[in-house]
Amino acid sequence: MDQPVRIVLAKVGLDGHDRGIKVVARALRDAGMHVIYAGLWQTPEAVVRAVADEDADWLGLSLLSGAHMTLVPRVLDLMKQACLGHVGVIVGGIIPEADISKLTGLGVAKIFGPGTSLEDIVAFLKSPREPVP
């Protein structure tokens, strides 16, 4: 049976810009997904705990602070430690071109920068997942 996609959306670190993540949350809800909104100022540890307890299929992180090369690898690392390798991670926000391949190399499934259409995010999350390496 087709079960709704469960996704945790969170902002890690001290970045307080949550307009984008709220718009994405609304779009994913309207696309029939179950969105667990974890909100602002989360620590990587708390986000990973939320992903575990919520049995999420996806984690969506939003970063506009420039701290992505510190925080995203930390989250990915903690996910592995918590045996959550099966959960896909997407990142949205301001990520410079040069960092995109670094982050996808570390295991981020997809990065959605400024100008991304909501339809693209929905389509990506609804398409069949590539097997976790």
Binding site: P4, D30, A31, G32
Partner: peptide, 15 residues
């Protein structure tokens, strides 16, 4: 849509 925005846990404090 069958969708839901589950927005309770962030008010309970991150833990």
């Amino acid at each position: 849509s069958g969708g839901a925005l589950l927005g309770d846990r962030f008010r309970m404090g991150s833990t």
